[in-house]
Design a protein around this nucleic acid. Structure first.
Lengths: 141, 141
DNA sequence: ATGCTAACATAGCTTGTGCTATAAGAAGTG
DNA sequence: CACTTCTTATAGCACAAGCTATGTTAGCAT
């Protein structure tokens, strides 16, 4: 009935790791979208869209900058580094695949969008590939 | 291209709330499984299976007890209250459906188990129902 | 019954992510 | 050019979830 304890533990560790990455990916994806759609990503806009206070964003950006994912000049907008852009691109691709997959399964668009937001961070490459194939084969009408 | 900011923010707030619930569900589900399979749920076992230190579990159990989800007597095992059992049951059902679904999709068992662990918390009732139907129709070979 | 070991309890620290309040810099307007 | 306003920076607090180290208790074995 129950799986081996070590295996079990490993799974949960993975999940916790994924949870920490979620926020980072959300930020990168959003920053990338903001820049693509308006040319700049200001802290206030990021904050408004994430539903969070501006200092929270400032702190997070500092961390992202330290990790080499974004670059910021004082009192100027924030930009993605090459590595940040890469991650953002992958996150967005994954997001789109998950969403199309759900649509192909016949889920309502609104639900698909919302569920995709949560699911995308927990999909391994193998599962993502399976989703992609399925979505391709069963194109949503 | 970008969705309305308030809608966007609301989605993220929901996601953050869900993230806090994840841990609780993981605990309840695991406690329920441990009791079902061995008659008791000891802190050390919970800790081993979650891949976490025992004091971390102790602290969490205290919180769950305050929230009326588990009951514990000092130096004795932990048990689920009625409300806790209910939540655990739903979480487990959801988990099983997600896992069978991934298996039916042709995902490797190991991967399916791991991905299910992360995905289960983000699946709406609508999507869950679609998963259930698909898994039933395409029973894993 | 006494003592040993395994399990639980507790203290205190770290890190991450949120907040409010406030200072400081940039930008637009008269 | 000065002033107002918008944006960003910084300080300081709270809380959740992790850790290590160490004290207590229960249960088993001699």
């Amino acid at each position: 009935m129950l799986v081996d304890a070590d295996v079990h533990a490993h799974g949960f560790r993975q999940a916790r790791k994924a949870r920490r990455l979620e926020l980072v990916e959300d930020y990168l994806e959003l920053i990338s979208d903001l820049i693509a759609s308006g040319g700049e990503a200001r802290q206030v806009d990021i904050a408004a869209r994430l539903g969070v206070a501006q200092p929270t964003v400032a702190k997070m950006l500092k961390r992202l900058a330290e990790d080499g994912l974004v670059s910021q000049k004082p009192y100027r907008g924030v930009f993605l580094t090459e590595r940040g852009e890469e991650l953002a691109k992958y996150a967005r691709k994954r997001h789109q695949i998950v969403e199309s997959f759900l649509l192909a399964l016949g889920i309502e668009p609104e639900t698909a969008r919302r569920d995709a937001e949560g699911i995308e961070h927990h999909v391994s490459r193998e599962t993502l590939e399976a989703f992609r194939r399925f979505a391709k084969k069963n194109k949503a009408r």
